[in-house]
Design a protein around this nucleic acid. Structure first.
Length: 924
RNA sequence: GGGCCCAUAGCUCAGUGGGAGAGUGCCUCCUUUGCAAGGAGGAUGCCCUGGGUUCGAAUCCCAGUGGGUCCA
């Protein structure tokens, strides 16, 4: 096994007089121009040297530094590209957020399937990393949101066997280091002080040599040379314990932290003051934080010290605070009081920037996916604001960052923030009440609130344990939060195991067949074609027929497959389903048309027409919804059908009736405009540059060219079949909306004939209702309301009357049988009315000091037994005895019981036995 | 994508197989008339919808609808 040491012997280092050293402290190897240098320069081997002593010639703002970087690389033959959204799940499904510039090019560009937008290129990519969220504000250098400035070059070996979307070498290690070195020099850094540390990189199945660039104690950049992939037979064993071998493609992946470069140029105590000084000032002022000269001095020194410490988790921060306080010569309490509000302010500024990125790029808060992350950040930010006493509305704070970042959808962002803050407030209020009553309960018993309750409160109601503790304390209850609280919560989510066996049935039978020519894109209106049967494969039921070309659309992009027939001179076979595998289209048929035959294909035209109408209508509905609800609306899924289709949209509020009507109106305007629906196959990077990522509502297709569908002003990457003109859709009718998840709304709609049918079905329902009520359809709502009110009134009246009837009956005696049972009198009677009446009568009789035994045969045999106060007869037992005689059971409290059974014919016998039963039970 | 929780009076909620409740608000009267005052009486309800189990379901089971929440 070999390590990668040779990979770092660069000509550039040699030419420039670098020497390779081993750090006397940590043992890492590094390259430096300074022959006497002993340590690598990276904390904890060294401390920050740039606080109050900036490392560059001039101080740069964040914007100035970004521009300086990008234009430097433009001047050195790189093309500047626009950054991608922070919501990486918009072009890849393996991650949620963009965490590095290379994410922009994974997986299609890095694998060589798709060419990069430019080569070499430079970009400043906004990124969000949630991993360090607890450190933000505390360490002086951690941020959740940051921009990774980068230059990338995509190379492929000339001797590679396979075809790649880029060829040859643009540049590799020497040039990369040279560019970085030159950049530092041009900014006025003392390049004698710069060290390049050897630090092999491994991640996500790829690996390669990498270099950390350290200057004045701060890691300014990482230069990664991605050129290896995991390989069981690989020659190199790397730090993750796996073996790796070289790939055909090799990629320069660099990362320069914009914030750190800005910080380096200013030398402020923390990175936050360097990157958004205005917002920090505003927040400090708003929270009423002001410091005397002496206090400022302490805060400054503490900040410097915390920055110098190598702190990677919060426990260390807390422990370190004591250390810092000692070194400054103040008490820990004093230090905490001074520093904690500032830490909150730093974190608020950072979190607001994170939210601006997330919401600005169209993430909608939700209980799933990126939306959930946005919600978490927002709630955390709100807590920090409350904690430190910032009373400016959160939407205003987020807007400050959104404005700085140049977002144009600021009104929507503010609206989303306001909605979310309100939701959070309601959750807290609900939770507060719940905790209060729980706390009171446990305060009475004197027991601490059990952990099980805490988990339930957090998991099901979103109430943090510290909030429970706070409220419980006021109510005088104890709370003991276990240290492993969050792992206990996690345990609750452990599923019995869901090891999915990925059924990877990559069918080798089709490997030698050519890709089927897709006729359905040439003329989407045609339904007939001729073809040659290349091969036929037998299936469990039916056959897979492969043709040289086809008009049949295979299932894909939410559009179901076409059906139809294939005919030879001799036979006609039914096509029941169509699938595509590696470009080969499989027609699933009931019979074998015969290999080598010429066939005449005919697709079910009516079905296809409806599918096309629904597909084009889907684009129109999304487009209309975006106009009505806002530009943040994005497709979260779609399914087309013959009778109806549905689309799921990301939106932060319920779509109400007014919205539906407006969306429907706009959609039908587009239909009535009868504009042409066009398709084109542009280069993917040209398309992205012109239309942005909103193209990919339904997923990202691979390849150099992508198919775009234009409907009205809407443009989407789409592989489906569409009508020629919007008028062909006929009409679009929205049938229903539902909230399928928080932040995701589903619209179900019908197009063409189905729209007409849907409308007629709704009308039928109305007419039928009108017919029942015997009124005009337009009077149905009013009449229904009146009927409902009257119905309720009558219910009340009937109840009232029953009570009167019962009292009259109890007083009047009637034909009821009266028996003496010991010292009390019992009334036994059969009334044949409902339970309510039976109960009322029994109550009235008991009021008069008599035992009531009433039976009814109205719906099954039923009994009610009521006993007056002071009687020693148990009503429940009486009922139980009687009910068993009619094949049922019964029970209830000792003074009032009811029961019954299915055998009505035995009711009279049971009642006749009642006196005996009563006497027996009394004697017992 | 998965897990969990909730739905009862205008509001906040209790009730977990057998007669629908409390607090608050509302109405009437009394007391007092000074700020969230006291006393007495009264009206509140398809117990979310639909199925099932049961002699009997607000209560148990299933499905749906609406909301909440945690996780990947």
């Amino acid at each position: 096994m070999s390590d990668l040491a040779d990979e770092y012997r660069l000509e550039y280092f040699e030419e420039e007089g670098f020497v390779r050293k081993e750090c006397s402290d940590c043992g890492n190897h590094f390259w430096t121009r300074d022959e006497d240098r002993e340590i690598c320069g990276e904390p904890p081997c060294a401390e920050y040297d740039f606080i109050d002593d900036p490392g560059f010639e001039e101080a740069y703002s964040l914007e100035e530094m970004r521009e300086a970087f990008l234009s430097f690389f433009e001047d050195h033959d790189h093309e500047r590209i626009e950054p991608y959204p922070v919501a990486a799940n918009r072009w890849r499904d393996d991650v949620l957020l963009t965490q590095a510039s290379i994410y922009d090019f994974q997986p299609l560009v890095t694998s060589g399937e798709t060419p990069p937008p430019a080569n070499p290129l430079t970009v400043s990519q906004p990124c969000i990393r949630m991993q360090d969220i607890d450190n933000v504000g505390k360490t002086g250098r951690h941020t959740m949101a940051f921009e990774m400035m980068a230059h990338h070059a995509f190379n492929a070996r000339e001797d590679a066997d396979a075809e790649y979307a880029y060829e040859g070498e643009v540049y590799w290690k020497d040039r990369t280091v040279e560019l970085c070195d030159t950049l530092l020099d041009s900014l006025g850094a003392d390049i004698e002080e710069v060290t390049y540390i050897e630090d092999p990189w491994v991640g996500g199945g790829n690996a390669g040599p990498a270099i950390e660039v350290i200057y004045k104690g701060l890691e300014l950049a990482t230069l990664v040379f991605m050129c290896m992939e995991q390989d069981p037979d690989g020659e190199y064993e790397l730090k993750d314990g796996n073996t790796y071998s070289f790939m055909d493609t090799y990629i320069v992946d660099t990362g320069y932290g914009l914030e750190r470069w800005t910080w380096m140029s200013q030398g402020t105590p923390t990175v936050y003051e360097a990157i958004y000084p205005d917002m920090i000032a505003f927040l400090k002022d708003n929270a009423g934080l002001s410091y005397t000269d002496e206090e400022s001095e302490i805060v400054g020194r503490a900040a410097r010290l915390s920055g110098n410490l190598d702190i990677d988790d919060v426990d260390d921060v807390e422990a370190a605070r004591g250390d810092i306080a000692d070194r400054i010569g103040v008490s820990v309490e004093e230090l905490r009081e001074l520093v904690e509000p500032l830490e909150d302010v730093y974190a608020i500024a950072d979190h607001c920037r994170t939210l601006a990125y997330m919401l600005g790029d169209g993430i909608v808060p939700s209980n799933v996916g990126t939306g959930y992350l946005a919600r978490m950040v927002l709630r955390r930010t709100k807590r920090l604001c409350d904690n430190v006493g910032v009373d400016a509305p959160l939407d205003e704070l987020v807007d400050m960052q959104a404005e700085r970042l140049g977002y144009e959808n600021r009104d929507t962002i503010r609206d989303i923030v306001r909605t979310e803050v309100e939701k959070y407030r309601e959750t807290l209020e609900r939770g507060g009440r719940r905790v209060e009553s729980l706390a009171e309960e446990y305060a009475e018993t004197g027991e601490p609130i059990p952990t099980e309750e805490l988990i339930e409160l957090y998991d099901s109601h979103g109430i943090q344990p510290d909030m429970v503790a706070e409220i419980a304390e006021q109510a005088g209850a104890e709370v003991d939060v276990p240290d492993d609280f969050y792992s206990l919560v996690a345990e609750r989510h452990d599923t019995p195991d869901g090891t999915e066996t990925v059924t990877d049935d990559a069918d080798e039978r089709f490997e030698d067949l050519p890709e089927t020519e897709k006729l359905y894109y040439d003329d989407q209106q045609r339904t007939q074609f001729e073809a040659v049967v290349l091969d036929v494969f037998e299936r469990d039921e039916g056959y897979d027929v492969v043709l040289d070309q086809t008009m049949f659309y295979p299932e894909g992009g939410g559009q179901p497959a076409d059906t139809g027939t294939l005919s030879t001179d001799d036979v006609t076979v039914e096509v029941e389903d169509v699938q595509i595998e590696d470009g080969v289209i499989l027609h699933r048929t009931d019979e074998n048309p015969g290999k080598g035959e010429f066939v005449n294909g005919q697709i079910d035209a009516a079905r296809r027409r409806q599918l096309m109408r629904h597909h084009t209508a889907t684009h129109i509905v999304i487009h209309s919804a975006r106009q009505v609800l806002g530009e943040h609306v994005r497709q979260a899924g779609a399914q087309k059908g013959v009778d109806s289709s549905r689309i799921d949209l990301r939106h932060y509020a319920r779509i109400d009736r007014e919205d539906v009507k407006e969306i429907e109106r706009r959609a039908n305007e587009i239909v009535m405009d009868n504009t042409a629906v066009s398709q084109e196959w542009p280069d993917r990077h040209d398309a992205e540059a012109e239309h942005g990522f909103d193209l990919y509502q339904g997923g990202i297709p691979p390849g150099e060219q992508i198919r775009l569908i234009h409907v009205d002003e809407d443009v989407q990457a789409c592989g489906g079949t569409h009508v020629a003109r919007t008028g062909d859709i006929g009409a679009i009718k929205i049938r229903s909306t539902e909230r399928v998840q928080d932040g995701v709304e589903r619209i179900t709609f019908a197009a063409g004939e189905a729209a007409l049918e849907a409308t007629q079905a709704a009308e039928d329902a109305l007419y039928e209702a009108a017919d029942v009520l015997d009124v005009d359809p337009e009077d149905v709502p009013e009449t229904a309301e009146r009927f409902f009110e009257e119905w309720k009134d009558r219910g009340k009246q009937i109840e009232d009357l029953k009570e009167q009837l019962a009292e009259a009956r109890a007083g009047g005696g009637g034909d009821a049988e009266e028996i003496d049972v010991g010292e009390t009198t019992a009334v036994v009677d059969r009334l044949d009315s409902d339970m309510d009446e039976l109960r009322a009568t029994a109550n009235a009789i008991a009021e008069e000091g008599k035992i009531a035994v009433l039976g009814s045969g109205e719906s099954g045999a039923q009994f009610v037994v009521a006993v007056p106060d002071g009687s020693d007869v148990n009503a429940g037992e009486v009922v139980g005895e009687l009910a068993s005689k009619v094949g049922g059971g019964g029970g209830g409290p000792a003074d009032f019981a009811q029961g019954g059974g299915p055998n009505v014919e035995d009711l009279d016998d049971a009642l006749e036995d009642a006196p005996d039963v009563l006497r027996q039970l009394q004697d017992a």
